[in-house]
Amino acid sequence: MAVISVANPKGGSGKTTLTLVLAAQFASQSASVAVIDADPNAFIAKWHARRVQEGRGSPFEVLASPKESEMVSIVDQMAKKFDFVLIDLEGTASRMTSRAFARSHLVLIPYNLSPIDASLAADAVRLVTEESEALNRSIEYRLVRSRENAAIKTKSARRIGAAIADAELPTLEAGLVERAAYRDMFDFAKTLDELDASTTSGLVQARANARAVAASVFTALTEGQKV
C-alpha cells in the first residue's frame, strides 16, 4: 500500500484535479483506491456523491471531511485495506496537514508555472521538511508542474524551471498538462475513460498525459522505497 498526500497552500494549484486524475488512473489499473477528501470545497466528495446518486457507482472509495483528531487513525485503517490512499488536503498549513504528512510515503506538491505559485510551492516544501525533522525520518516529496501549456513554454516558466533545477528540488518527471478533459471529469462526474470524444476535446492527449503522470508517481514511490 502507498499513502500519497497532495498539498499546496495556494488554491487553484491543481491539487484536487491531480488527486482525482491519479485516483481514477490507479483504479483503472485494477488497484484498490481510497481518497480522503480533506479539502473544505470537497469537490471529489461531490463528484463521488453525484455518481452514487445517479446509480453509477464509483471506481474508488471516498471519505469526506475527516476530523483533525481522527486523521492518523483513518489513514492507518485505510492503508490496511487499499493499495493506494490519496489525501486531498486543505490549502493552509494545519495539524491536519502535519498528520497526513506523518503517514505519507509520498507528498505531491502541484504548482502552476508562475512566480507566485512557485513561491507558495516552496512554502509547502518547507512544511514537508519541518515534518521530516520532527519525525526524524525523510518524507519523500515531488513538485508537480500543473496546468502546464503543452504547446508553449513562457520565459517566466523557463526561469522558474531553471530555479527549481538549480535548487535541486525533486520534481515529478511528468507534469499535468492543461486539458479540457480534466475539467470535464468534474462537470460530468466521470473518469477520463468514461468521457466521450464527441463532447470532450483533447481526450486522447489527456489520457496519455494521465498515464504518464501516474507512471511518474509509481517511479517516485519506488525511489522512495530505496532510500
Rank of each mutant, 00 (worst) to 15 (best):
A38F: 00
M96S: 15
A165L: 13
L195D: 11
A118D: 06
R103G: 00
T199F: 09
V177D: 08
K80T: 12
T19M: 08
E130V: 06
M71P: 00
A163N: 15
Q77G: 13
P170R: 11
Q205G: 12
L120P: 00
L195I: 10
S156L: 14
A134Q: 11
A151W: 11
E61P: 02
A79M: 06
Q25N: 12
S132I: 03
V227I: 09
A27I: 02
E178F: 07
K15G: 04
E178D: 14
G14K: 06
L135I: 06
S146T: 08
N149G: 13
A93N: 14
K67G: 11
K46D: 15
A2C: 07
L108V: 05
F84H: 14
A42G: 04
D88S: 03
E178H: 11
F60H: 05
A121C: 03
E173D: 15
D123G: 04
E70F: 01
T219H: 13
S30C: 04
M71R: 01
A2D: 08
T199I: 09
K155Q: 10
V75G: 01
D187H: 09
S216T: 11
A206K: 10
A134V: 08
R159S: 13
L195W: 11
A150K: 12
K155C: 02
L172Y: 04
E133D: 13
A124R: 03
Q53F: 00
G12P: 06
P66K: 02
A210N: 10
S69C: 00
P110K: 04
V21P: 08
I139Q: 05
A151Y: 11
R183Q: 10
A38C: 07
Q25Y: 00
I36P: 01
A174S: 14
I74N: 01
E90D: 13
D196I: 07
R50Y: 02
A162C: 01
V107T: 12
Q225K: 09
I87R: 00
I164D: 03
G91V: 04
M1S: 13
I139D: 08
V6C: 15
L120I: 12
L203A: 10
L18G: 06
R56K: 13
L18A: 10
N8S: 09
A157Y: 03
L22H: 08
W47Y: 07
D83R: 02
V35L: 07
S13V: 11
A23S: 13
T154E: 09
T92N: 14
A7V: 05
S28E: 12
N149P: 08
L18R: 03
R211A: 15
P115H: 06
I160T: 06
F82R: 07
G14S: 08
R145T: 05
I164Y: 03
K46T: 14
S32H: 02
E223T: 14
F43G: 07
V52L: 15
T199V: 11
G175V: 09
T129W: 07
F82D: 00
T199D: 12
Y182I: 05
L89K: 01
A45L: 05
W47Q: 05
K226F: 05
A27T: 03
V72E: 12
V72A: 15
Q225A: 13
D193G: 10
V33F: 03
V85T: 14
